[in-house]
Amino acid sequence: MSDNEAENELVRMANEIAAFFKPYPHDEAVADISQHILDFWDPRMRRAMIAHLEAGGEGLQPLALEGLEAALRPAPAA
């Protein structure tokens, strides 16, 4: 898997997580997406996503983007 593919995979995962929480009120959805990322993504996945966000966050749905921003900035301690 090239870096690009791995990144696409993370983007897809984030978008799918966001799709589940989308029916919920906006703030609740952002908080739940954020918590899900913190609960289940290992630090290197989060670091890769931070890099992707810094590069513009291409391919991320707006709600996924908000959830990720909430989870990953500031960056995880690891």
Binding site: F40, W41, P43
Partner: peptide, 14 residues
């Protein structure tokens, strides 16, 4: 911190 799940292990191996 949570660790890698199996599919993430494969991705990280690559």
């Amino acid at each position: 911190e949570p660790g890698l799940r199996i599919p993430n292990m494969f991705a990280s191996a690559l």
